[in-house]
């Protein structure tokens, strides 16, 4: 397999990290409301966005995903008091790391999505997929002969 799929149209794969209480429920809400969005995302659920080790994001890129979307409860709504504060702080550091690395930081996005914001979830996914399609395959994709 060739990085980026050769002549075939580029079909990005995007990891979405969701917290159990808000954004995963937001994604469910998008489903219940039958909001259509592109099938490029793969959701990984954790209890709190504060569990999302920046290493998971780096690992996702190293393993060949083209974009990562980190989601959590809105600021002030965290089920665990302030887990998303820590997510935000780590994200700031991580996005600087991507900047320096030269990996387009548009491949990484942080969004707060509540349990009722199914439409927002769908819209954010649409935007991210659109954005990553524009950027093309991730330059960090493993090289496999």
């Amino acid at each position: 397999m060739q990085a980026g799929g050769g002549v075939k149209e580029f079909v990005p794969k995007i990891v979405v990290f969701c917290c159990n209480w808000c954004s995963y429920a937001g994604a469910d809400m998008a489903g219940v409301s039958r909001m259509q969005y592109p099938p490029n995302i793969r959701i990984i659920k954790v209890m709190c966005s504060g569990r999302i080790d920046p290493i998971f994001v780096l690992m996702s890129f190293m393993e060949g995903t083209d974009g990562v979307l980190v989601t959590g409860c809105h600021i002030g709504d965290c089920h665990y008091i302030n887990g998303n504060y820590k997510t935000q702080n780590r994200f700031e550091i991580l996005s600087e790391m991507m900047n320096e690395l030269g990996l387009e930081k548009e491949r990484l996005r942080l969004e707060w999505i509540s349990a009722t914001e199914g439409e927002k979830f769908a819209n954010v996914v649409k935007e991210v997929v659109e954005q990553v399609k524009k950027l093309g395959p991730s330059p960090l994709k493993p090289v496999i002969e």
Binding site: I55, L58, M62, I93, P139, L140
Partner: peptide
Amino acid sequence: RIRMFNMIRLL
């Protein structure tokens, strides 16, 4: 393309 070791040290 880069070792996770290097990436995590950087991080």
